[in-house]
Design a protein around this nucleic acid. Structure first.
Lengths: 146, 146
DNA sequence: CTACATGCAAAGGGTTTGCACTTAT
DNA sequence: ATAAGTGCAAACCCTTTGCATGTAG
């Protein structure tokens, strides 16, 4: 990571534009997509800057990240975000879900001597809309078992 | 995907070597790593073939795949595999874990009109060994919340 | 002024693909 | 013989980085 490894964060036009655009996003966006939207909306920001900014935000915990398909997806991290999602492989729609109990997770980890750092729980599938549109489509990553 | 999109699968030296090497792996391996091991063990197989073979296996459900760091990891898919893992960020060690109950997952999906296609549950952290070796290290992907 | 932030373009790493060549069947 | 599978290298995509140039403080 670059960009003020230690110093104080600065206030820049690009950062504002990026955050604004990010907040306007419904679910997760890729860096590329965000850059495209920024460009389209007139506020030109370099691709490298988008990446640096997003990485910085992710590191500080200001955005959530999920790896989907082959790219990193980012999203503004609400405080009530639980990092668990229902993700539509068709349209990319994501729905926040709350698992009933994650206590067993800590127990399992402890029983194996692990110190939990982070966890992900992602459920991929097709939302109601996409089930109708594409009844006969399959994607590579992961096979049925759910 | 290439490689016999419709026809019957053929039996080749490369495929054998690859499967054998794959079975010899403890946990998940990347395509690159697997290719390296194949090369080292004398059975030279092209990198492209490794990728094609692995993708084919993944699609047919013969191997499990997980995306870790920035690359796809593959592992022979035992029938009793549950697709849930405890993964050490330090040494890459993975431990299969079994969650208590996944019924709620189906219910949540159904309540949102989703048709589940696949799901992942990965817990990242440091195993006992790595906790000792590297007491002061942090990694980017995802921030604490567990 | 000075350090942080940006932009550009080049480099990097993983993965896929086009195409000619092998080889199992 | 014929189509599946392979190898190589080039192409691709996403992401990171080096470096000169802006710019917030």
């Amino acid at each position: 990571m670059d960009m003020a490894e230690h110093g104080v964060a600065r206030h820049t036009r690009q950062k504002d534009a990026l955050l604004q655009q990010l907040r306007a996003c419904e679910g997760f966006v890729s860096a590329q997509e965000l850059h495209r939207r920024l460009t389209d909306s007139g506020a030109s920001v370099g691709l490298a800057t988008v990446y640096r900014q997003l990485n910085s935000l992710a590191e500080s915990g200001a955005v959530d990240t999920v790896r989907l398909d082959g790219q990193q997806m980012f999203r503004i991290c609400d405080d009530d975000s639980h990092h668990h999602h229902l993700i539509c492989s068709g349209c990319g729609k994501t729905i926040e879900i709350e698992p009933p109990d994650m206590e067993w997770m800590r127990q399992v980890a402890r029983s194996h001597g692990f110190k939990i750092n982070s966890h992900t729980l992602e459920i991929f599938g097709l939302c109601a809309d996409c089930q109708n549109k594409r009844a006969t489509t399959q994607q590579s990553q992961g096979h049925d078992r759910a």
